[in-house]
Amino acid sequence: TDVTFHVNGRNLHLKGADEELLRRIEELIRRGADIEELEKAVKEWEK
């Protein structure tokens, strides 16, 4: 799945995201995470 999140005026584009990653990103956004936290979560998922 390709999806782009718009967070605090910045874009986080995910290519090939699975349901697990999407749920994790949505949860972080609900908690008020900043873009750096979201990018870190994506990097951890990519490993």
Rank of each mutant, 00 (worst) to 15 (best):
D34S: 07
I25H: 00
G9C: 04
H6D: 15
H6R: 04
G16L: 05
K40G: 11
H13V: 15
A41G: 03
E36W: 06
A41M: 09
F5L: 15
G16T: 06
I35N: 02
N8V: 01
L12V: 04
G16H: 07
R31D: 13
E39H: 07
E20G: 14
R30L: 10
D2K: 03
G32T: 03
L14K: 00
E27R: 08
E26I: 14
R23V: 10
T1Q: 12
E44L: 11
R24F: 12
N8A: 04
G9T: 02
K15T: 08
D34R: 06
A33H: 09
I25F: 04
K40F: 13
G32H: 04
H6S: 05
A41H: 13
L14D: 00
R30E: 09
R10V: 15
H6Y: 06
I29Y: 05
D18T: 15
K47H: 11
R23P: 01
H13T: 14
N11D: 15
E46Y: 14
E37S: 09
D34T: 08
L12W: 09
D34L: 06
G9Q: 02
A41K: 08
R24K: 10
K47R: 12
V3R: 08
E44I: 12
N8M: 04
D34I: 06
V7W: 02
H6E: 15
G32P: 01
E27G: 11
E36Q: 06
A33N: 07
V3A: 06
L28Q: 05
F5W: 01
E44C: 11
R23S: 08
V7S: 02
W45K: 04
R10L: 08
A33M: 10
E26K: 13
A33I: 05
L38G: 00
E37F: 08
A33K: 11
L14Y: 01
V42E: 01
E27H: 08
K40Y: 12
V7C: 12
E44F: 08
F5C: 15
F5N: 14
L14T: 01
L12M: 05
K15E: 05
E46F: 10
E36P: 12
A41W: 08
G16M: 06
E26L: 13
E46I: 10
T4N: 14
D34P: 05
R31P: 00
R24V: 10
K43W: 12
R10F: 12
L12H: 00
G32C: 03
E44D: 12
K40L: 14
G16K: 06
R31E: 13
E46H: 09
V3L: 12
T1S: 12
E36V: 07
F5V: 15
R23Y: 08
L14W: 00
D18W: 01
E36S: 06
L22W: 02
K40H: 11
E46C: 06
E37Q: 11
R30A: 13
A17C: 15
F5Y: 09
H13N: 05
K40I: 14
E39R: 05
V42D: 00
E36N: 07
G16N: 14
L28N: 02
D34F: 07
A41S: 07
E27C: 10
R31G: 13
K15Y: 08
D18Y: 01
A41E: 14
T1V: 15
G32R: 03
A41I: 13
E39T: 07
V42H: 03
A33V: 07
R30W: 10
